[in-house]
Design a binder for these strands. Sequence first.
DNA 1: AATGAATGAGGCTTCATTCAT
DNA 2: CATGAATGAAGCCTCATTCAT
Lengths: 190, 190, 190, 190
Amino acid sequence: MRTLDEEKRERIGNAAIRLINTIGFADVSMSKIAKKAGVATSTIYLYFDNKQDMLNKLYLMVRSDFSYALRKGYVSSLPVEDSMRGIYFRIIKYFEENPHHSSFMEQFASSALIHGINREEEAKYFHFLVQLIDRGIQGGLLKNTSTSTIGAFLFYPIVHRIHQHQVEGLKMSRIEKERIFTMMWDAIKN
Amino acid sequence: MRTLDEEKRERIGNAAIRLINTIGFADVSMSKIAKKAGVATSTIYLYFDNKQDMLNKLYLMVRSDFSYALRKGYVSSLPVEDSMRGIYFRIIKYFEENPHHSSFMEQFASSALIHGINREEEAKYFHFLVQLIDRGIQGGLLKNTSTSTIGAFLFYPIVHRIHQHQVEGLKMSRIEKERIFTMMWDAIKN
Amino acid sequence: MRTLDEEKRERIGNAAIRLINTIGFADVSMSKIAKKAGVATSTIYLYFDNKQDMLNKLYLMVRSDFSYALRKGYVSSLPVEDSMRGIYFRIIKYFEENPHHSSFMEQFASSALIHGINREEEAKYFHFLVQLIDRGIQGGLLKNTSTSTIGAFLFYPIVHRIHQHQVEGLKMSRIEKERIFTMMWDAIKN
Amino acid sequence: MRTLDEEKRERIGNAAIRLINTIGFADVSMSKIAKKAGVATSTIYLYFDNKQDMLNKLYLMVRSDFSYALRKGYVSSLPVEDSMRGIYFRIIKYFEENPHHSSFMEQFASSALIHGINREEEAKYFHFLVQLIDRGIQGGLLKNTSTSTIGAFLFYPIVHRIHQHQVEGLKMSRIEKERIFTMMWDAIKN
DNA sequence: AATGAATGAGGCTTCATTCAT
DNA sequence: CATGAATGAAGCCTCATTCAT
């Protein structure tokens, strides 16, 4: 019973995420999600309180999934640069392997829907990264600026470029990935 | 008869943009826009063909406005670094002065709505920037990578940080702006 | 001035009639009529009180036009059969020359719009025909039944067949016209 | 869950047909139909795809019902005249018992709405009649003309007269029915 | 006389959610 | 647990008509 439950919840969630990326937030309806998930519309309400609740939960699920993927293999004893490098390439890996999730995160984050999302719970997921960056700044390895700013350079340029490639149906070469890492590192290193 | 009123068209457009930023794309309706603009719903249809047409036109308007603001004062004879610096600070200025526009652009770009937007027309707006970056690469001043990648470092980190500040109701200090410029420059310079 | 007026009124009327036949009563709007007639929507209201008034007037206009065409050349001194024959072929001629009018009459008559039409005024148009039929009955030439019944045989079969031909884009042969006249005459003659 | 209710589908259909006869095609709206049927407007969409689909289905339903009523009791071994007589009186019976259906058929057929109706499927309903008429022509009993022409005399005069009576709130006498049958028969017989 | 902008009402349809099975 | 029928609210858009020029 338990298994069946969770499998169905996931099917609904995946249907929702895929639909949002395909036709956009504004055009996604509960009935379309239900049809794509192969369940009755009202069944969704057994797993989620309502539409807003569902979207919020999906977002947090994806965020958690994403942060888990970044943290995987992270060893706090490694040198900062090696750790940053690992995270950087895990970002790429995740976005390449989960294009739907990445696009969903982007749409959700930039939509006005994040209202009501528990931002503190969100922050928790990336706490390990905050600590790593702080260690780098404290050790004089990274420029002395806010964590957020370092994070902005770590994330946004590469994420944007991957997204561009995906939209155009291209794959990013290993060389370009390395080149962007170098640029990012030049930006944040002292 | 009365003549079609450009002031009214603008009022409708502004109402739409503000609403989108306030309540999000998905929840904006023509009637809400009309109410905020102080016109009848049907009046909107005298100025725009339909909702999609309206959003597209608004997006292109804002993009054009934005690119115009960036280009303003740009002199192609100046050294590349000075020009980049000028553009960088005009980005900040624009986003600080037009928070609604910036947020609208972001939401629109990341939503599934860009379908049907003439991407080539869009590219035209930023042609001067592409040329500037190419000049920098050709002259050996900038790293030898794609224009898009350079652009990604020029735009995204700072835009994201400004957005963060705006959401939190803070103003970014001159020092941080300079610091982020340095980081950006470290990233792209050879 | 007078001329210009009437010419425009007719342009509007023709546009309306054609549109109704093309897209049907339910989908005809004042603005579509105006566009087809090449005038402003509000201009229609200078010539007609409102939509209903316009349709009624058009109907009566067409009816009058039709009855005039049937009466044309009618000489009360001629034998009944010759007169009937003349009318029968003028019906055909009119419907062939004015397919839009015929279709409009049919749609209008069978729609619920005839409510409010002055049926007595309508009857007036066809008074000469009533008299002719009565004469035929009185003289023992025609079967002793109601005028309406005689009229029904005179009109409906041939009109329906012409309509069928028009829908299928065909022309009715002289032979078939004669054959149907014979059938009609067999039906009504004593 | 509750199962889709055929009784309700019929209630909606009847409400639509009655309304069309009362206020006309052009003025019938889904909300008026819903109100008359005692359901929510949106409920109609559980039973029909959209308005056009509904009207088409109603038309085909009525046509089928009508043709079934005419065919009922038809025995192909009977003499042609007897069969024609039977059909003629079943036409009258049907139109007297189902005044709404008859008026609906007429309005629908003459409106521009028949677009999209499968005319071949429609023809199928009346195939037995075509065969009967052909038999009469072949046997030399009926005049040698097209089936459509024979059909036009069989249907239109009597249908029109019944309609006239209904509009005026009168009943047609047995004598007049017989008289019109005689006229019809005189028209088509050899 | 003629125009086209403006509008409130209403059109068709879909939505999120609840109900009854 | 799961379903799909049912609904009132709301969506986008068009309409007939009037207003201001």
